[in-house]
Amino acid sequence: MTAAPQEMLLKIEGLHKCFGEQAVLAGASLAVPRGSLVAILGRSGAGKSVFLKCLADVIEPDAGEIWFDGRLLARGDAGVRQHFRSRCSFLFQSNALFDSLTALENVALPLEQTMDLPAGEVRERSLEALKQLELEAFWDRYPGQMSGGMQKRLALARAIVTRPELVLFDEPTAGLDPVRRNAVFTMIAKYQRQFGFTALIVTHDVPEALVAADLVALLDTGRMVFQGSPGEFIASEEAMVIQFRDSEKELSKMLASIRRGETIHTEDT
């Protein structure tokens, strides 16, 4: 018996982006199944963030096609783009929280500005999102009064409050220590399962991504040189994957642990 093919929520074909003479993306393609957590790996400067920003419409690609839920996101079609934006959220590396707004106002912003909801419902849904991220006690604090981890959770609350189908994460663990990196990935995986959205994470934290993700893709020299399950990534004999794996010290350590039969702990700390 063959398994039913997974429905693709997002399909990217042949994405190109150049900055001056430098080609950052040179035909990158990716298929993201609905409800999955996909991690895009790659070295620093490989173009991972550019790839994600092209998807989120922050950067305009030079060429290539992006299909969302079976519809082509054509560059000139404002209606389709708006529809895509209403079903997609983006979590920036810097969190991009509004420092002049309180936590509640930050979360309420996309609801107030993009949906026709009564004020009471906006407040209720915003408080609910804060509660789900364990931030309800800090609703009146400004982002500057919160710790880095709390800001990350607040950004996630803002991203999920509109109940998006797709959440794009740009280096969610950048600048964090290994313990916090693990906690952030665990948090993302937990909420991705809880809310059922499709998650696309760009990262260079390989061990955490391999534990949390359903699918892994490797971006190198502007192209996706690998796409498969974490198990397939670990077992892959492809030269690019081997080269990347070997360059990641932590990954090597983790693989050694797996070989020794040790368990990798990913509990929220």
Binding site: D57, Q82, S89, F90, F92, S94, A96, L109, Q113, T114
Partner: peptide
Amino acid sequence: NTEQIAALETMGV
């Protein structure tokens, strides 16, 4: 500079 403007655009605002 802190991507707050880009964040608004990605929200559809």
